[in-house]
Design a protein around this nucleic acid. Structure first.
Length: 260
DNA sequence: ATGCCAGGTAACACCTGA
């Protein structure tokens, strides 16, 4: 049975990251990539460069902020843009499509929510409830499905370098964690955690204060699997290599492999 | 207690991020 490697990567501007991304695609050779924070509109996405690297592309872009995309070596079918549940939401944070004929994938850029106590935090929690409702519906389709992205949630205290330093942050508020658990409890499997249980595995290190060099990071990028996808998981991990490069994103890819 | 760094936009400073 052939395997595909699916990775999620918050690139913090696809244009600024283009040279790094092209090197990473060649070296790591993912079959499907879920991108977040592309920070450009659909017509500004550097399509040709990715097509030349062997990928098909689906984008849901926005000027300056947010923006998500899917890259796949297979065609991408039945693309849907935007998270259902609020017609007034104009932020480009969700795209899904079918790859390799039968694998439903979504690229998620969940709102940050800082500072706590403002409408930004309320927006985050509402967005998480909309995401849960949408995933609940999607699960009735009994598909091989993966929801990967920047969830902007640190699931447990073991997923952060210093709990005290982050205690007031929206990423690890009890309400953020409860909503993340509520999504998992629909019956999803965290790909990384089905192969690695140790603490202090990070996917993000701030640009500031030498966080990367001191390993002051946290885990906020996750790939959640439907039961049908979980049954097909063969491996998962974090590729820390891109974070150590010049002109790196502040995130690094989280990935998994599934039989298709 | 605050800014640290980085990206984008529009302008030669400000906003946002996590």
């Amino acid at each position: 049975m052939p395997k595909i490697k699916v990775a999620t990567f918050n690139v913090n501007s696809v244009k600024a990251r283009l040279p790094n991304l092209l090197v990473w695609l060649k070296e790591f050779a993912p079959d499907v990539v879920l991108l977040q924070e592309i920070k450009c509109m659909d017509d500004g996405f550097p399509r040709m460069e990715f097509e030349d690297a062997g990928y098909n592309i689906a984008t849901h872009g926005q000027k300056t902020y947010n923006g998500v995309a899917i890259l796949s070596k297979s065609p991408i079918e039945d693309v849907a843009r935007g998270l259902p549940g609020d017609d007034t939401d104009v932020q480009a944070r969700y795209i899904e499509g079918t790859v390799y004929g039968s694998v439903r994938v979504a690229s998620i850029y969940l709102p940050n929510g800082n500072p706590v106590g403002t409408e930004k935090f309320t927006y985050k929690l509402n967005w998480m409830q909309r995401l849960r409702a949408h995933i609940k519906q999607q699960l009735f389709n009994d598909e091989i499905a993966l929801w990967g992205g920047d969830y902007n949630v640190i699931p447990t205290d073991g997923d952060v370098w210093n709990v005290a330093a982050m205690k007031d942050d929206a990423l690890m508020q009890p309400e953020s964690r409860a909503n993340f658990r509520a999504i998992l409890h629909l019956g999803l499997t965290d790909a990384l955690r089905s192969f690695h249980t140790q603490d202090h595995m990070y996917s993000f290190w701030d640009y500031q204060a030498g966080a990367w060099q001191k390993d002051h990071g946290f885990l906020i990028d996750h790939i959640l699997c439907s039961p049908q996808a979980a049954d097909r998981l063969t491996n998962a991990g974090i590729d820390k290599n891109p974070r150590g490069q010049e002109k790196a994103s502040d995130h690094t890819p989280v990935w998994c492999e599934i039989n298709v």
